[in-house]
Design a protein around this nucleic acid. Structure first.
Lengths: 299, 299
DNA sequence: TTTATAGATAAGTTTATGTTTATCTATAAA
DNA sequence: TTTATAGATAAACATAAACTTATCTATAAA
Protein backbone atom coordinates (compact mmCIF):
# COMPACT_ATOMS: atom_id res chain seq x y z
CA UNK A 1 0.00 0.00 0.00
CA UNK A 2 1.29 3.42 -0.79
CA UNK A 3 0.31 6.94 0.14
CA UNK A 4 -0.26 9.35 -2.74
CA UNK A 5 -0.18 13.14 -2.87
CA UNK A 6 -3.76 13.10 -4.04
CA UNK A 7 -4.86 11.18 -0.96
CA UNK A 8 -3.17 13.73 1.26
CA UNK A 9 -4.80 16.62 -0.59
CA UNK A 10 -8.25 15.10 -0.20
CA UNK A 11 -7.56 14.13 3.40
CA UNK A 12 -6.46 17.65 4.28
CA UNK A 13 -9.63 19.10 2.82
CA UNK A 14 -11.84 16.67 4.72
CA UNK A 15 -9.94 17.22 7.96
CA UNK A 16 -10.21 20.98 7.54
CA UNK A 17 -13.91 21.06 6.73
CA UNK A 18 -14.75 18.02 8.86
CA UNK A 19 -17.10 16.95 6.13
CA UNK A 20 -16.75 14.67 3.14
CA UNK A 21 -19.39 16.54 1.22
CA UNK A 22 -17.90 20.02 1.80
CA UNK A 23 -14.47 18.70 0.88
CA UNK A 24 -15.89 17.21 -2.29
CA UNK A 25 -17.43 20.55 -3.24
CA UNK A 26 -14.17 22.35 -2.56
CA UNK A 27 -12.21 19.90 -4.70
CA UNK A 28 -14.84 19.80 -7.45
CA UNK A 29 -15.37 16.12 -6.86
CA UNK A 30 -18.35 13.98 -5.97
CA UNK A 31 -18.76 12.75 -2.42
CA UNK A 32 -18.08 9.08 -3.24
CA UNK A 33 -14.75 10.05 -4.80
CA UNK A 34 -13.74 11.60 -1.49
CA UNK A 35 -14.95 8.58 0.46
CA UNK A 36 -12.79 6.34 -1.68
CA UNK A 37 -9.65 8.41 -1.32
CA UNK A 38 -10.04 8.50 2.45
CA UNK A 39 -10.72 4.79 2.53
CA UNK A 40 -7.56 4.10 0.58
CA UNK A 41 -5.50 6.33 2.82
CA UNK A 42 -6.97 4.61 5.87
CA UNK A 43 -6.05 1.31 4.26
CA UNK A 44 -2.48 2.54 3.79
CA UNK A 45 -2.03 3.64 7.37
CA UNK A 46 -3.96 0.69 8.75
CA UNK A 47 -6.20 2.73 11.01
CA UNK A 48 -9.32 4.87 10.76
CA UNK A 49 -8.51 8.57 10.43
CA UNK A 50 -12.06 9.77 11.03
CA UNK A 51 -14.82 8.62 13.32
CA UNK A 52 -18.43 9.34 12.75
CA UNK A 53 -20.78 10.00 15.63
CA UNK A 54 -24.25 10.75 14.48
CA UNK A 55 -23.91 13.15 11.56
CA UNK A 56 -20.66 14.70 12.71
CA UNK A 57 -17.24 13.38 11.87
CA UNK A 58 -14.15 13.85 14.02
CA UNK A 59 -10.50 13.18 13.44
CA UNK A 60 -9.19 10.20 15.36
CA UNK A 61 -5.89 10.48 17.13
CA UNK A 62 -4.22 8.88 14.14
CA UNK A 63 -6.06 11.36 11.94
CA UNK A 64 -4.75 14.30 13.93
CA UNK A 65 -1.20 12.99 13.67
CA UNK A 66 -1.62 12.29 9.98
CA UNK A 67 -2.94 15.78 9.37
CA UNK A 68 0.18 17.37 10.75
CA UNK A 69 2.42 15.14 8.62
CA UNK A 70 0.20 15.76 5.66
CA UNK A 71 0.46 19.53 5.95
CA UNK A 72 4.18 19.21 6.33
CA UNK A 73 4.48 17.20 3.15
CA UNK A 74 2.27 19.53 1.18
CA UNK A 75 4.27 22.48 2.42
CA UNK A 76 7.43 20.79 1.18
CA UNK A 77 5.83 20.21 -2.19
CA UNK A 78 4.81 23.84 -2.38
CA UNK A 79 8.33 24.93 -1.44
CA UNK A 80 9.76 22.69 -4.15
CA UNK A 81 7.33 24.11 -6.70
CA UNK A 82 8.28 27.62 -5.69
CA UNK A 83 11.99 26.99 -5.99
CA UNK A 84 11.49 25.37 -9.39
CA UNK A 85 9.52 28.40 -10.41
CA UNK A 86 12.34 30.70 -9.34
CA UNK A 87 14.92 28.63 -11.15
CA UNK A 88 12.96 28.94 -14.35
CA UNK A 89 13.76 32.66 -14.29
CA UNK A 90 17.21 34.15 -14.80
CA UNK A 91 17.40 35.90 -11.47
CA UNK A 92 18.17 33.10 -9.11
CA UNK A 93 20.33 30.11 -8.51
CA UNK A 94 23.98 29.56 -9.03
CA UNK A 95 26.16 30.43 -11.99
CA UNK A 96 29.45 28.58 -12.33
CA UNK A 97 31.89 30.28 -14.67
CA UNK A 98 35.39 29.11 -15.42
CA UNK A 99 37.73 31.42 -17.34
CA UNK A 100 41.16 30.92 -18.81
CA UNK A 101 43.72 33.12 -17.09
CA UNK A 102 44.36 35.23 -20.19
CA UNK A 103 40.72 36.22 -20.29
CA UNK A 104 40.93 37.45 -16.72
CA UNK A 105 42.11 40.90 -17.83
CA UNK A 106 38.56 41.96 -18.62
CA UNK A 107 36.24 39.08 -17.62
CA UNK A 108 36.05 40.21 -14.03
CA UNK A 109 34.65 43.56 -15.11
CA UNK A 110 32.10 41.76 -17.26
CA UNK A 111 31.07 39.60 -14.33
CA UNK A 112 30.80 42.60 -12.05
CA UNK A 113 28.29 44.24 -14.37
CA UNK A 114 26.28 41.04 -14.72
CA UNK A 115 26.30 40.51 -10.96
CA UNK A 116 24.98 44.03 -10.44
CA UNK A 117 22.14 43.37 -12.90
CA UNK A 118 21.28 40.00 -11.30
CA UNK A 119 21.87 40.60 -7.60
CA UNK A 120 20.33 37.36 -6.33
CA UNK A 121 22.41 35.11 -8.56
CA UNK A 122 25.24 33.39 -6.76
CA UNK A 123 28.25 33.58 -9.07
CA UNK A 124 31.08 31.12 -8.65
CA UNK A 125 34.11 32.23 -10.64
CA UNK A 126 37.08 30.05 -11.26
CA UNK A 127 40.20 31.48 -12.96
CA UNK A 128 42.55 28.74 -14.00
CA UNK A 129 44.98 27.62 -16.69
CA UNK A 130 43.75 26.13 -19.90
CA UNK A 131 44.46 22.52 -19.05
CA UNK A 132 42.70 22.62 -15.68
CA UNK A 133 39.81 24.43 -17.30
CA UNK A 134 39.40 21.63 -19.82
CA UNK A 135 39.45 19.11 -16.97
CA UNK A 136 36.68 20.96 -15.22
CA UNK A 137 34.65 21.02 -18.40
CA UNK A 138 35.19 17.27 -18.64
CA UNK A 139 33.84 16.83 -15.10
CA UNK A 140 30.84 19.03 -15.94
CA UNK A 141 31.66 21.56 -13.22
CA UNK A 142 31.17 24.92 -14.95
CA UNK A 143 28.01 26.10 -16.66
CA UNK A 144 30.03 28.22 -19.07
CA UNK A 145 33.67 28.89 -19.84
CA UNK A 146 35.40 31.91 -21.38
CA UNK A 147 38.57 31.04 -23.21
CA UNK A 148 40.53 31.28 -26.42
CA UNK A 149 39.58 29.08 -29.35
CA UNK A 150 38.41 25.81 -27.80
CA UNK A 151 39.84 22.51 -29.02
CA UNK A 152 37.77 20.99 -31.81
CA UNK A 153 37.85 17.47 -30.36
CA UNK A 154 35.95 18.19 -27.18
CA UNK A 155 32.41 18.51 -28.43
CA UNK A 156 31.71 21.97 -27.16
CA UNK A 157 29.21 24.55 -28.24
CA UNK A 158 31.26 27.70 -28.60
CA UNK A 159 30.81 31.13 -30.03
CA UNK A 160 33.29 33.98 -30.37
CA UNK A 161 32.23 37.04 -28.46
CA UNK A 162 35.14 39.43 -28.70
CA UNK A 163 38.14 40.20 -30.86
CA UNK A 164 41.43 39.51 -29.25
CA UNK A 165 44.03 41.40 -31.31
CA UNK A 166 47.62 40.36 -30.81
CA UNK A 167 50.02 43.26 -31.08
CA UNK A 168 53.77 43.69 -31.00
CA UNK A 169 54.99 45.52 -27.93
CA UNK A 170 58.33 47.08 -27.19
CA UNK A 171 60.00 49.13 -24.49
CA UNK A 172 59.22 52.84 -24.69
CA UNK A 173 62.72 53.74 -25.87
CA UNK A 174 62.79 51.18 -28.70
CA UNK A 175 64.31 52.67 -31.89
CA UNK A 176 61.35 51.59 -34.05
CA UNK A 177 58.78 52.98 -31.63
CA UNK A 178 57.70 55.85 -33.87
CA UNK A 179 58.12 54.22 -37.31
CA UNK A 180 55.01 53.42 -39.35
CA UNK A 181 54.29 50.22 -41.31
CA UNK A 182 57.42 48.37 -40.35
CA UNK A 183 57.98 45.29 -42.53
CA UNK A 184 58.32 42.23 -40.36
CA UNK A 185 61.70 41.38 -41.94
CA UNK A 186 63.18 44.54 -40.41
CA UNK A 187 62.98 42.67 -37.09
CA UNK A 188 65.28 39.87 -38.17
CA UNK A 189 67.97 40.73 -35.65
CA UNK A 190 65.65 41.43 -32.74
CA UNK A 191 65.11 38.90 -29.95
CA UNK A 192 61.55 37.89 -29.13
CA UNK A 193 60.16 37.00 -25.71
CA UNK A 194 57.71 34.12 -26.10
CA UNK A 195 55.09 32.46 -23.92
CA UNK A 196 55.43 28.84 -22.80
CA UNK A 197 54.49 26.22 -25.37
CA UNK A 198 50.84 25.28 -25.07
CA UNK A 199 49.92 28.93 -24.92
CA UNK A 200 47.45 29.98 -27.56
CA UNK A 201 49.25 33.28 -27.96
CA UNK A 202 52.51 31.45 -28.69
CA UNK A 203 50.81 29.22 -31.27
CA UNK A 204 49.24 32.22 -33.01
CA UNK A 205 52.56 34.03 -33.11
CA UNK A 206 54.38 31.12 -34.69
CA UNK A 207 51.63 30.68 -37.26
CA UNK A 208 51.95 34.36 -38.16
CA UNK A 209 55.72 34.20 -38.59
CA UNK A 210 55.49 31.06 -40.74
CA UNK A 211 52.85 32.68 -42.93
CA UNK A 212 55.15 35.65 -43.48
CA UNK A 213 58.24 33.53 -44.11
CA UNK A 214 59.96 35.03 -41.14
CA UNK A 215 62.23 32.98 -38.94
CA UNK A 216 62.30 34.78 -35.62
CA UNK A 217 65.11 34.99 -33.14
CA UNK A 218 64.01 33.54 -29.81
CA UNK A 219 65.20 35.65 -26.93
CA UNK A 220 63.62 34.01 -23.90
CA UNK A 221 60.68 31.76 -23.01
CA UNK A 222 58.50 32.99 -20.12
CA UNK A 223 55.54 31.69 -18.14
CA UNK A 224 52.47 33.89 -18.31
CA UNK A 225 51.62 37.30 -19.67
CA UNK A 226 52.91 39.29 -16.74
CA UNK A 227 56.40 37.89 -17.07
CA UNK A 228 56.49 38.65 -20.79
CA UNK A 229 55.31 42.23 -20.25
CA UNK A 230 57.90 42.90 -17.57
CA UNK A 231 60.62 41.43 -19.78
CA UNK A 232 59.68 43.70 -22.65
CA UNK A 233 59.52 46.74 -20.37
CA UNK A 234 63.02 45.89 -19.15
CA UNK A 235 64.25 45.92 -22.75
CA UNK A 236 64.89 42.18 -23.08
CA UNK A 237 63.15 42.07 -26.47
CA UNK A 238 59.85 42.35 -28.31
CA UNK A 239 56.73 40.26 -27.81
CA UNK A 240 53.38 39.49 -29.35
CA UNK A 241 50.62 39.80 -26.74
CA UNK A 242 46.89 40.26 -26.52
CA UNK A 243 46.16 43.95 -26.55
CA UNK A 244 43.84 43.44 -23.57
CA UNK A 245 46.78 42.45 -21.40
CA UNK A 246 48.67 45.71 -21.99
CA UNK A 247 46.00 48.39 -22.14
CA UNK A 248 47.11 49.98 -18.89
CA UNK A 249 50.81 49.89 -19.78
CA UNK A 250 50.18 51.61 -23.15
CA UNK A 251 48.16 54.37 -21.48
CA UNK A 252 50.82 54.85 -18.81
CA UNK A 253 53.48 54.88 -21.55
CA UNK A 254 55.43 52.05 -19.97
CA UNK A 255 55.20 50.05 -23.19
CA UNK A 256 54.65 50.99 -26.83
CA UNK A 257 52.91 49.21 -29.66
CA UNK A 258 54.97 48.78 -32.86
CA UNK A 259 53.19 49.37 -36.17
CA UNK A 260 54.21 46.14 -37.93
CA UNK A 261 52.77 45.33 -41.36
CA UNK A 262 50.24 42.49 -41.12
CA UNK A 263 49.56 43.13 -37.46
CA UNK A 264 47.49 42.94 -35.36
CA UNK A 265 46.72 39.23 -35.62
CA UNK A 266 43.01 38.91 -35.11
CA UNK A 267 42.23 36.11 -32.69
CA UNK A 268 39.02 35.81 -30.78
CA UNK A 269 37.66 34.86 -27.39
CA UNK A 270 34.90 32.34 -27.01
CA UNK A 271 32.08 31.58 -24.66
CA UNK A 272 31.62 27.82 -24.59
CA UNK A 273 29.82 24.96 -22.89
CA UNK A 274 29.63 21.23 -23.37
CA UNK A 275 27.26 20.00 -25.96
CA UNK A 276 24.23 18.45 -24.24
CA UNK A 277 24.52 20.84 -21.32
CA UNK A 278 21.13 22.10 -20.16
CA UNK A 279 21.88 25.73 -19.54
CA UNK A 280 19.86 27.31 -16.77
CA UNK A 281 17.98 30.49 -17.60
CA UNK A 282 20.67 32.31 -15.66
CA UNK A 283 23.46 30.70 -17.67
CA UNK A 284 21.70 31.54 -20.90
CA UNK A 285 21.26 35.10 -19.75
CA UNK A 286 24.96 35.33 -18.97
CA UNK A 287 25.91 33.82 -22.31
CA UNK A 288 23.83 36.38 -24.13
CA UNK A 289 25.14 39.13 -21.93
CA UNK A 290 28.70 38.18 -22.85
CA UNK A 291 27.93 37.98 -26.56
CA UNK A 292 26.21 41.35 -26.46
CA UNK A 293 29.03 42.98 -24.50
CA UNK A 294 31.47 41.64 -27.12
CA UNK A 295 29.39 43.13 -29.95
CA UNK A 296 29.38 46.53 -28.32
CA UNK A 297 33.10 46.43 -27.68
CA UNK A 298 33.86 45.60 -31.31
CA UNK A 299 31.83 48.47 -32.81
CA UNK B 1 1.39 21.08 -11.66
CA UNK B 2 0.87 17.54 -10.48
CA UNK B 3 3.84 15.88 -8.80
CA UNK B 4 3.27 12.33 -7.57
CA UNK B 5 5.07 10.36 -4.91
CA UNK B 6 5.88 7.76 -7.53
CA UNK B 7 7.66 10.35 -9.65
CA UNK B 8 9.76 11.39 -6.67
CA UNK B 9 10.64 7.79 -5.87
CA UNK B 10 11.77 7.13 -9.41
CA UNK B 11 13.57 10.47 -9.58
CA UNK B 12 15.42 9.78 -6.34
CA UNK B 13 16.59 6.41 -7.63
CA UNK B 14 17.83 7.88 -10.92
CA UNK B 15 19.54 10.77 -9.13
CA UNK B 16 21.23 8.38 -6.72
CA UNK B 17 22.43 5.92 -9.34
CA UNK B 18 22.90 8.55 -12.04
CA UNK B 19 21.52 6.03 -14.50
CA UNK B 20 18.06 5.37 -15.84
CA UNK B 21 18.88 1.73 -16.47
CA UNK B 22 20.26 1.06 -12.96
CA UNK B 23 17.31 2.84 -11.43
CA UNK B 24 14.95 0.74 -13.50
CA UNK B 25 16.64 -2.43 -12.28
CA UNK B 26 16.46 -1.28 -8.68
CA UNK B 27 12.76 -0.46 -8.96
CA UNK B 28 11.96 -3.59 -10.96
CA UNK B 29 10.83 -1.50 -13.90
CA UNK B 30 11.84 -1.31 -17.52
CA UNK B 31 14.04 1.55 -18.68
CA UNK B 32 11.31 3.22 -20.77
CA UNK B 33 9.03 3.31 -17.71
CA UNK B 34 11.71 5.27 -15.85
CA UNK B 35 12.23 7.60 -18.80
CA UNK B 36 8.52 8.36 -18.80
CA UNK B 37 8.29 9.11 -15.09
CA UNK B 38 11.25 11.48 -15.27
CA UNK B 39 9.82 13.13 -18.34
CA UNK B 40 6.55 13.74 -16.55
CA UNK B 41 8.27 15.16 -13.50
CA UNK B 42 10.32 17.41 -15.74
CA UNK B 43 7.08 18.49 -17.37
CA UNK B 44 5.63 19.31 -13.96
CA UNK B 45 8.59 21.42 -12.86
CA UNK B 46 9.02 22.94 -16.31
CA UNK B 47 12.74 22.30 -16.50
CA UNK B 48 15.14 19.47 -17.26
CA UNK B 49 16.34 17.72 -14.10
CA UNK B 50 19.08 15.74 -15.82
CA UNK B 51 21.51 16.51 -18.59
CA UNK B 52 23.21 13.92 -20.68
CA UNK B 53 26.76 14.38 -21.87
CA UNK B 54 28.04 11.44 -23.76
CA UNK B 55 26.95 8.34 -21.88
CA UNK B 56 26.92 9.99 -18.48
CA UNK B 57 23.98 11.83 -17.00
CA UNK B 58 24.27 14.62 -14.48
CA UNK B 59 21.77 16.43 -12.31
CA UNK B 60 21.06 19.94 -13.47
CA UNK B 61 20.91 22.71 -10.92
CA UNK B 62 17.14 22.31 -10.83
CA UNK B 63 17.66 18.57 -10.41
CA UNK B 64 19.94 19.08 -7.44
CA UNK B 65 17.42 21.37 -5.80
CA UNK B 66 14.60 18.97 -6.57
CA UNK B 67 16.52 16.07 -5.11
CA UNK B 68 16.86 17.77 -1.78
CA UNK B 69 13.16 18.60 -1.69
CA UNK B 70 12.36 15.11 -2.84
CA UNK B 71 14.36 13.48 -0.06
CA UNK B 72 12.71 15.79 2.43
CA UNK B 73 9.27 14.78 1.28
CA UNK B 74 10.06 11.10 1.31
CA UNK B 75 11.51 11.43 4.80
CA UNK B 76 8.29 13.06 5.93
CA UNK B 77 6.31 10.26 4.41
CA UNK B 78 8.47 7.71 6.18
CA UNK B 79 8.05 9.58 9.47
CA UNK B 80 4.30 9.61 9.00
CA UNK B 81 4.27 5.90 8.25
CA UNK B 82 6.35 5.24 11.34
CA UNK B 83 4.08 7.24 13.61
CA UNK B 84 1.03 5.48 12.18
CA UNK B 85 2.77 2.21 12.86
CA UNK B 86 3.40 3.19 16.46
CA UNK B 87 -0.18 4.30 16.91
CA UNK B 88 -1.40 0.94 15.75
CA UNK B 89 0.16 -0.52 18.89
CA UNK B 90 -1.05 0.10 22.44
CA UNK B 91 2.13 1.65 23.75
CA UNK B 92 2.01 5.12 22.32
CA UNK B 93 -0.15 8.12 21.81
CA UNK B 94 -2.53 9.90 24.06
CA UNK B 95 -5.24 8.49 26.29
CA UNK B 96 -7.98 10.85 27.39
CA UNK B 97 -9.94 9.58 30.37
CA UNK B 98 -12.76 11.43 32.08
CA UNK B 99 -14.01 10.14 35.42
CA UNK B 100 -16.94 11.10 37.58
CA UNK B 101 -15.76 12.51 40.87
CA UNK B 102 -17.14 9.61 42.93
CA UNK B 103 -15.01 7.20 40.97
CA UNK B 104 -11.94 9.20 41.87
CA UNK B 105 -11.45 7.31 45.15
CA UNK B 106 -9.83 4.41 43.36
CA UNK B 107 -9.51 5.35 39.67
CA UNK B 108 -6.25 7.22 40.21
CA UNK B 109 -4.66 4.05 41.57
CA UNK B 110 -5.91 2.16 38.54
CA UNK B 111 -4.44 4.76 36.22
CA UNK B 112 -1.14 4.72 38.05
CA UNK B 113 -0.78 0.99 37.45
CA UNK B 114 -1.74 1.33 33.78
CA UNK B 115 0.68 4.22 33.34
CA UNK B 116 3.49 2.15 34.81
CA UNK B 117 2.73 -0.67 32.37
CA UNK B 118 2.55 1.70 29.38
CA UNK B 119 5.22 4.29 30.14
CA UNK B 120 5.15 6.03 26.75
CA UNK B 121 1.43 6.66 26.74
CA UNK B 122 0.48 10.20 27.56
CA UNK B 123 -2.50 10.01 29.91
CA UNK B 124 -4.80 12.96 30.24
CA UNK B 125 -7.10 12.57 33.23
CA UNK B 126 -10.09 14.72 33.85
CA UNK B 127 -12.02 14.43 37.12
CA UNK B 128 -15.29 16.25 36.92
CA UNK B 129 -18.94 16.15 37.97
CA UNK B 130 -21.39 14.00 36.12
CA UNK B 131 -23.02 16.75 34.12
CA UNK B 132 -19.75 18.20 32.82
CA UNK B 133 -18.58 14.67 32.06
CA UNK B 134 -21.63 14.07 29.88
CA UNK B 135 -20.95 17.37 28.09
CA UNK B 136 -17.40 16.28 27.35
CA UNK B 137 -18.69 13.00 26.00
CA UNK B 138 -21.05 14.97 23.80
CA UNK B 139 -18.12 17.00 22.44
CA UNK B 140 -16.13 13.80 21.84
CA UNK B 141 -13.29 14.86 24.11
CA UNK B 142 -12.55 11.69 26.13
CA UNK B 143 -11.67 8.31 24.72
CA UNK B 144 -13.25 6.58 27.69
CA UNK B 145 -15.16 7.58 30.81
CA UNK B 146 -15.51 5.87 34.17
CA UNK B 147 -18.77 6.62 35.92
CA UNK B 148 -21.87 5.23 37.60
CA UNK B 149 -24.62 3.81 35.45
CA UNK B 150 -24.66 5.92 32.28
CA UNK B 151 -27.93 7.45 31.04
CA UNK B 152 -29.70 5.20 28.55
CA UNK B 153 -30.55 8.00 26.12
CA UNK B 154 -27.01 8.91 25.16
CA UNK B 155 -26.05 6.08 22.85
CA UNK B 156 -23.04 4.88 24.74
CA UNK B 157 -21.26 1.57 24.77
CA UNK B 158 -20.89 0.81 28.48
CA UNK B 159 -19.93 -2.13 30.60
CA UNK B 160 -19.87 -2.53 34.38
CA UNK B 161 -16.41 -3.27 35.69
CA UNK B 162 -16.70 -3.13 39.47
CA UNK B 163 -19.22 -3.46 42.23
CA UNK B 164 -19.96 -0.31 44.12
CA UNK B 165 -21.63 -1.36 47.35
CA UNK B 166 -23.49 1.35 49.22
CA UNK B 167 -23.27 0.98 52.98
CA UNK B 168 -24.73 2.74 55.96
CA UNK B 169 -22.17 4.65 58.00
CA UNK B 170 -22.38 6.12 61.45
CA UNK B 171 -20.15 7.85 63.98
CA UNK B 172 -17.95 5.48 65.99
CA UNK B 173 -19.93 6.01 69.17
CA UNK B 174 -23.28 5.32 67.59
CA UNK B 175 -25.49 3.10 69.87
CA UNK B 176 -26.23 0.62 67.06
CA UNK B 177 -22.56 0.30 66.07
CA UNK B 178 -22.11 -3.22 67.37
CA UNK B 179 -25.58 -4.61 66.67
CA UNK B 180 -26.06 -7.24 63.98
CA UNK B 181 -28.76 -7.46 61.35
CA UNK B 182 -30.53 -4.28 62.26
CA UNK B 183 -33.98 -4.05 60.64
CA UNK B 184 -34.21 -0.83 58.68
CA UNK B 185 -37.32 0.19 60.55
CA UNK B 186 -35.29 0.47 63.76
CA UNK B 187 -33.83 3.65 62.19
CA UNK B 188 -37.17 5.42 62.00
CA UNK B 189 -36.15 8.14 64.43
CA UNK B 190 -32.64 8.66 63.11
CA UNK B 191 -31.78 11.60 60.83
CA UNK B 192 -30.08 10.88 57.51
CA UNK B 193 -27.50 13.02 55.76
CA UNK B 194 -28.17 12.89 52.03
CA UNK B 195 -26.29 13.89 48.88
CA UNK B 196 -27.58 16.62 46.63
CA UNK B 197 -30.34 15.62 44.25
CA UNK B 198 -28.92 14.47 40.92
CA UNK B 199 -26.42 12.30 42.75
CA UNK B 200 -26.58 8.64 41.79
CA UNK B 201 -25.96 7.65 45.40
CA UNK B 202 -28.95 9.73 46.52
CA UNK B 203 -31.18 8.14 43.87
CA UNK B 204 -30.08 4.64 44.85
CA UNK B 205 -30.74 5.38 48.52
CA UNK B 206 -34.25 6.63 47.88
CA UNK B 207 -35.05 3.64 45.70
CA UNK B 208 -33.87 1.34 48.51
CA UNK B 209 -36.02 3.05 51.12
CA UNK B 210 -39.11 2.96 48.89
CA UNK B 211 -38.58 -0.73 48.21
CA UNK B 212 -38.45 -1.41 51.96
CA UNK B 213 -41.44 0.77 52.77
CA UNK B 214 -39.34 2.99 54.92
CA UNK B 215 -39.94 6.70 55.05
CA UNK B 216 -36.65 8.20 56.20
CA UNK B 217 -36.11 11.27 58.29
CA UNK B 218 -34.01 13.79 56.34
CA UNK B 219 -31.43 15.36 58.59
CA UNK B 220 -29.44 17.53 56.18
CA UNK B 221 -28.61 17.75 52.43
CA UNK B 222 -24.90 18.05 51.62
CA UNK B 223 -22.81 18.56 48.45
CA UNK B 224 -20.36 15.79 47.76
CA UNK B 225 -19.14 12.73 49.59
CA UNK B 226 -16.59 14.48 51.74
CA UNK B 227 -19.19 16.75 53.32
CA UNK B 228 -21.46 13.79 54.05
CA UNK B 229 -18.64 11.82 55.64
CA UNK B 230 -17.59 14.72 57.85
CA UNK B 231 -21.19 15.27 58.90
CA UNK B 232 -21.59 11.65 59.92
CA UNK B 233 -18.28 11.68 61.78
CA UNK B 234 -19.48 14.76 63.68
CA UNK B 235 -22.59 12.83 64.77
CA UNK B 236 -25.09 14.77 62.67
CA UNK B 237 -26.74 11.56 61.47
CA UNK B 238 -26.35 8.42 59.36
CA UNK B 239 -25.66 8.19 55.62
CA UNK B 240 -25.61 5.75 52.74
CA UNK B 241 -22.31 6.02 50.83
CA UNK B 242 -20.18 4.03 48.44
CA UNK B 243 -17.91 1.82 50.46
CA UNK B 244 -14.98 2.99 48.34
CA UNK B 245 -15.36 6.51 49.69
CA UNK B 246 -14.95 5.46 53.34
CA UNK B 247 -12.39 2.68 53.28
CA UNK B 248 -9.75 4.79 55.03
CA UNK B 249 -12.17 6.09 57.69
CA UNK B 250 -13.33 2.55 58.52
CA UNK B 251 -9.76 1.33 58.93
CA UNK B 252 -8.87 4.32 61.09
CA UNK B 253 -12.04 3.75 63.10
CA UNK B 254 -13.31 7.24 62.50
CA UNK B 255 -16.54 5.84 61.08
CA UNK B 256 -18.35 2.56 61.50
CA UNK B 257 -20.48 0.54 59.14
CA UNK B 258 -23.91 -0.46 60.45
CA UNK B 259 -25.10 -3.98 59.70
CA UNK B 260 -28.52 -3.13 58.31
CA UNK B 261 -30.71 -5.87 56.83
CA UNK B 262 -30.87 -5.61 53.04
CA UNK B 263 -27.61 -3.71 52.80
CA UNK B 264 -25.27 -3.20 51.10
CA UNK B 265 -27.05 -1.93 47.99
CA UNK B 266 -25.14 -3.30 45.04
CA UNK B 267 -24.56 -0.64 42.44
CA UNK B 268 -21.85 -0.81 39.81
CA UNK B 269 -19.33 1.33 38.07
CA UNK B 270 -19.06 1.44 34.29
CA UNK B 271 -16.45 2.05 31.66
CA UNK B 272 -18.14 3.73 28.71
CA UNK B 273 -17.55 5.45 25.38
CA UNK B 274 -19.72 6.87 22.64
CA UNK B 275 -21.05 4.47 20.11
CA UNK B 276 -19.22 4.96 16.83
CA UNK B 277 -16.02 5.94 18.62
CA UNK B 278 -12.92 4.43 17.03
CA UNK B 279 -10.99 3.39 20.10
CA UNK B 280 -7.23 3.51 19.68
CA UNK B 281 -5.31 0.38 20.56
CA UNK B 282 -4.25 2.19 23.72
CA UNK B 283 -7.83 3.02 24.64
CA UNK B 284 -8.88 -0.56 24.03
CA UNK B 285 -6.01 -1.76 26.17
CA UNK B 286 -7.09 0.55 28.98
CA UNK B 287 -10.69 -0.55 28.69
CA UNK B 288 -9.68 -4.17 29.03
CA UNK B 289 -7.30 -3.34 31.83
CA UNK B 290 -10.13 -1.69 33.77
CA UNK B 291 -12.52 -4.58 33.18
CA UNK B 292 -9.89 -7.06 34.28
CA UNK B 293 -8.96 -5.07 37.36
CA UNK B 294 -12.67 -4.97 38.26
CA UNK B 295 -12.95 -8.75 37.89
CA UNK B 296 -10.02 -9.33 40.19
CA UNK B 297 -11.35 -6.90 42.78
CA UNK B 298 -14.73 -8.64 42.86
CA UNK B 299 -13.38 -12.16 43.49
C1' DT C 1 -43.73 10.14 11.09
C1' DT C 2 -41.76 12.39 7.33
C1' DT C 3 -38.08 14.75 5.20
C1' DA C 4 -33.46 16.20 4.45
C1' DT C 5 -28.68 15.37 4.98
C1' DA C 6 -24.24 12.85 5.36
C1' DG C 7 -21.76 9.19 4.23
C1' DA C 8 -21.24 4.17 2.37
C1' DT C 9 -21.51 1.05 -1.34
C1' DA C 10 -21.82 -0.85 -6.07
C1' DA C 11 -21.28 -0.73 -10.92
C1' DG C 12 -19.39 1.10 -14.77
C1' DT C 13 -16.36 4.46 -17.39
C1' DT C 14 -12.46 7.20 -18.36
C1' DT C 15 -7.78 8.21 -17.64
C1' DA C 16 -3.22 7.26 -16.09
C1' DT C 17 0.42 4.09 -15.37
C1' DG C 18 3.34 0.54 -16.50
C1' DT C 19 4.66 -3.23 -19.75
C1' DT C 20 6.67 -5.36 -23.76
C1' DT C 21 8.67 -5.12 -28.11
C1' DA C 22 11.04 -2.93 -31.51
C1' DT C 23 13.73 0.63 -33.36
C1' DC C 24 16.83 4.71 -33.30
C1' DT C 25 20.73 7.72 -31.97
C1' DA C 26 24.87 8.70 -29.79
C1' DT C 27 28.92 7.46 -27.50
C1' DA C 28 32.67 4.73 -25.56
C1' DA C 29 35.36 0.81 -25.93
C1' DA C 30 37.42 -3.11 -28.46
C1' DT D 1 35.67 0.40 -38.04
C1' DT D 2 32.96 -2.55 -35.38
C1' DT D 3 30.61 -3.62 -31.21
C1' DA D 4 28.32 -2.79 -26.95
C1' DT D 5 25.86 0.30 -24.00
C1' DA D 6 22.66 4.05 -22.54
C1' DG D 7 18.87 6.41 -23.28
C1' DA D 8 14.82 8.19 -26.38
C1' DT D 9 10.82 7.18 -28.90
C1' DA D 10 6.77 4.77 -30.58
C1' DA D 11 3.07 1.36 -30.87
C1' DA D 12 0.09 -1.84 -28.80
C1' DC D 13 -1.71 -3.50 -24.78
C1' DA D 14 -2.84 -4.65 -19.75
C1' DT D 15 -3.79 -3.02 -15.35
C1' DA D 16 -4.88 0.09 -11.85
C1' DA D 17 -6.46 4.53 -10.28
C1' DA D 18 -9.74 8.10 -10.11
C1' DC D 19 -14.21 9.37 -11.16
C1' DT D 20 -19.20 9.38 -11.98
C1' DT D 21 -23.96 7.88 -11.49
C1' DA D 22 -27.26 5.57 -8.93
C1' DT D 23 -28.76 3.65 -4.81
C1' DC D 24 -28.82 2.57 0.16
C1' DT D 25 -28.54 3.43 5.25
C1' DA D 26 -28.53 6.04 9.35
C1' DT D 27 -29.44 10.12 11.75
C1' DA D 28 -31.22 14.68 12.94
C1' DA D 29 -34.58 17.93 12.26
C1' DA D 30 -39.26 19.40 10.83
Amino acid sequence: MHITVRQLQVFEAVARRLSYTRAAEELHLTQPAVSMQIKQLEGSVGMPLFEQMGKKIYLTQAGTAMLSHSRNIMQNLAAAAEEMNDLRGADSGRLRISIASTVNYFATQLLAVFAREHPSVEIILDVTNRESLLNRLEANVPDLVLMGKPPADMDLVSEPFMDNPLVMIAATDHPLASRKKIPIHDLANTGFLVRESGSGTRAAMERFFVEHDFSYKKGMELMGNEAVKQGVEAGLGLALVSIHTVEQELVLNRLVKLDIEGLPIMRRWYVAHRRGKRLSATAQAFREFVLEAGMKAST
